[in-house]
Each structure stands twice: as structure tokens, then as C-alpha cells.
Design a protein around this nucleic acid. Structure first.
Lengths: 194, 194
DNA sequence: CGCGGGTTTGATGATGCTCAAGCCCGGTGG
DNA sequence: CCACCGGGCTTGAGCATCATCAAACCCGCG
């Protein structure tokens, strides 16, 4: 299960065999069954998590108990409540599994040690976070300037995989819409599929 | 003008005198007068920019020519179209000056060289981007779950400084609202200031 | 004094939400 | 093999929030 992690690392940095060993030593494998929580809002986020198999979602609840999903994390991606993880403050998000999943986790101590022992990991995470910033920035701009239909079309184009793996009311939540709206959009789009 | 940069760096990493020299050598100082562009949408973003004085804004235009501001950058912060800067693709944002400003800029080559010569800079940027991700993530969640009034209140609380420095129709754009809406909110909030 | 940018205000309207009902379908147990 | 259950999807009626558009106003500055 480390293969997928190392593949991922190698896209950004080249580690020696030794460094790879060190990296490996810092991760802890974990299993997370469908519907189980990795993190609960209000508790400190203990892990920076790389998903090697399965699918997680991260979300907040608003005053009325409605779920607002901010991230889906399939295999090959990272998840965490970064604010909580790095600051030690209570988390704003809950993270749970949509499918039976396998994870590789780092505690904040693991993370600190790892970046100190293998400075290239700072470079790796620099690039990782750099891409994250770009993605979040784009999502916010889209949230502000696209119509519901445009948001949905973008999702279909850019994440066709997700669309097939996730129930539509969750996609709606991810886009800041409701299930009812998505449903109506689909109906309209039948007559003008582009 | 480098003082403010080094202060900023020192909050995250400790550089030797030598390293400081190298860092200094890679930056180019620049002046940007009010209303002048640092970057225009459609062109490649050449600089990663640290603002030492003044205030910039970054925005996109939608189909109708309306400005959607995604970032204000006062002194002590970084700005760029990160996607364009790192990929060499045309920028999605325009960046211009709201006040006469002074900048320290890095080209992408400067940036590459700098991180290779001073690995601690990878660590610095890792931390910088890490905080960025947290901030953008929070902004998106807020965009999705707060009402107009809540968004505006948050801004007043968290960025009182900005509010005094920037005309309100620009704040509105930053929040994904319109000037008219903000104006009405203010009126309502007089009766219930909290 | 007049100009220009910014703000306020009103009238109107659209977009997407809410709530509730009905439906579809796959899985489970009798 | 059928009945039922539950989750998800669809649909309708009504509604809230915020946008749009246009006019008036305010004020600092040349």
C-alpha cells in the first residue's frame, strides 16, 4: 500500500532508498470502514492522512444540521483538517468514509520529524500545498461567479469519476447547492446537453 | 524595504547571514503606482510578489465585465496568479494597485534557484502555502454556508483594517456580494449591532 | 463650481431554497 | 418469490435572499 504513496512522491521529488525508508517509518497504516469517522468536529485533528484505497469526505454542519462538504478524498490524495492538525485547536470539520478505505497517517510529531530528517519532504509538501492553494482559489472564484448549472457542468467535466462514485445529494452539498436543484438542472440539461 | 520581508521569513525559519544574502540577491524591487497593473488576465504571470508597502487587489472579470475580487494584498503578504506562475499558462486573474505600492518580486527562475540553493526556503514556502490552504478552505466554506450579513460581519471582525482602506463596493466583490447589498446590510445592522 | 467616484435607496425580478409528497430501485427477510 | 424497507432521486408550490437597474445623493478635489 506504500506504492501509491511513493508514486505520488516521485512525481514531485526524488528520494534515495534511505530516505524512502525514513519516510516509510513515519507513516502508520490504518483501516477505515464505510461510515466510520476519521475525525470529528470539535476534537483535535491528530492525523495528516494519505488515502491509498477508498473514498472519504470532509464536511461541517451548519446551525440547522445540514452537511456542507468541502472535500472528497479518493485514493492518491491527502486529507486532514489542516488548521486543527497544525495548530492543535479543535477541528472545524468531520471526516468519514464513503467506502471501506485504507489510509497512511502521520501525526504532527511524525510530520515534524520527517520534514527535519528529510528536507526534501518540505519541498514535496510545498508543492503539494501550492497545488492545493491553486485548487481552492479556483473553487472560491467559481463559487462566486458561476451559476448553479455552470458549477454542475464543471464538476461533470473535471471530476467525472466522482460523479459516478458519490450520491448526488453529496455532490450538491460539495457545490453549495441542494439535491433538488441538481435534479432540476439535470432535467433542463437533457434538452441542451452541449 | 527588505526588513519587512526578513521579519516575515524569520517567523517561520531561521536563516544564516549567508543565506539571507542569497535570498536578497534573488529578489527584484519594483514600484507599482496606484491603478497600474502588475498582471493582466490572459498573460503569463511572471512574478511571485511580496508587498512591502501599499495594497494590491487580484480579480477576474465574468462574462458581463463585473469584477470578482479574490484577494487583497497589503504590505507583508504575497500575491501572484499561482497557477499561471508555476505552470506558465495564461493567467486567470488581473492584479493591480489600490495604493502606490512597493514590491519585491521573484521570477519563476529566481524561485527555482532560491529553493535549490536554500532548502529552508522550501520549508518557508511550505508553511506559507499551508496557511494559505487553511485560509482559502475557510473562505470557501463560509461562502457556502454564511448569509450575506454573516459574511460581512466576519469581515468586519477579522479584517477591520481592510474595511477602512478599501471602498465598500470592492469589499462587496470580495465577499461575492454587491455594493447595494452591503449598503442595505449596514442599515439593518444599525438597529442590531451585536 | 463642477466633476467623478462612491454610496444609498427604491422597484422589480431571478435564482435557487424549503418543505413535503411521491417514486424508484436494490437489498433483505419472511 | 414476493413484500417491504430505506436511501436516494424527482417534482411541485411557495418563498427568501440577494441581484439588477436606475436614479439621486454625497463629498472631496481640482
Amino acid at each position: 500500500m506504500y506504492d501509491i504513496l511513493f508514486n505520488h512522491l516521485e512525481k514531485k521529488v526524488t528520494l534515495s532508498a534511505e530516505e524512502q525508508e525514513i519516510v516509510k517509518d513515519h507513516f502508520t497504516p490504518r483501516i477505515l470502514k464505510k461510515r466510520k469517522l476519521l475525525l470529528q468536529e470539535g476534537y483535535v485533528c491528530k492525523y495528516l492522512t494519505f488515502v491509498t484505497k477508498g473514498l472519504l469526505k470532509a464536511y461541517t454542519l451548519d446551525g440547522k444540521g445540514t452537511e456542507h462538504i468541502n472535500q472528497f478524498t479518493p485514493e492518491g490524495w491527502w486529507t486532514s483538517d489542516m488548521y486543527s492538525f497544525f495548530s492543535g485547536q479543535p477541528a472545524n470539520y468531520t471526516i468519514d468514509a464513503l467506502e471501506d478505505s485504507e489510509l497512511l497517517t502521520l501525526t504532527v510529531e511524525d510530520f515534524e520529524q520527517l520534514t527535519l530528517k528529510v528536507p526534501l519532504m518540505d519541498r514535496y509538501f510545498r508543492m503539494l500545498f501550492q497545488n492545493s492553494v491553486i485548487a481552492w482559489e479556483r473553487r472560491l472564484v467559481h463559487a462566486h461567479m458561476l451559476t448553479a448549472e455552470e458549477k454542475y457542468r464543471q464538476l461533470l467535466e473535471n471530476n467525472p469519476n466522482l460523479v459516478n462514485r458519490v450520491p448526488q445529494h453529496l455532490l450538491a452539498s460539495y457545490l453549495g447547492l441542494t439535491a433538488a436543484t441538481i435534479s432540476r438542472l439535470k432535467k433542463n440539461m437533457l434538452s441542451d446537453p452541449r
